[in-house]
């Protein structure tokens, strides 16, 4: 099991992480963030592998930490 720390106010909603997550843990939030985007959201119900793929592809370093 893994988990990530996502700073939703840094996210610019490119959804590259959403497309890259092997376990489809990430999805688009339905609430806007401080920048006015619908940021990526970590779905705690899904199984995060803690692979850090999402953090590696995020252009905004919005995913600040990944634990496994």
């Amino acid at each position: 099991m893994g988990r990530i720390v996502l700073n939703r106010d840094r996210c610019k909603a490119c959804y590259i992480c959403v497309d890259s997550c092997p376990n489809k843990v990430l999805e688009a939030d339905e609430k806007v963030n401080a920048l006015g985007y619908y940021p990526a959201k970590f779905n705690a119900d899904k199984k995060c592998a803690g692979c850090a793929i999402c953090a590696r592809v995020c252009p905004d370093m919005a995913i600040e930490k990944v634990y496994r």
Partner: peptide
């Protein structure tokens, strides 16, 4: 206190 000044999804950030 970094600021990423690039557009959404821009590879510069990576």
């Amino acid at each position: 206190d970094f600021k990423i000044t690039f557009c959404p999804g821009c590879d510069h950030g990576v």
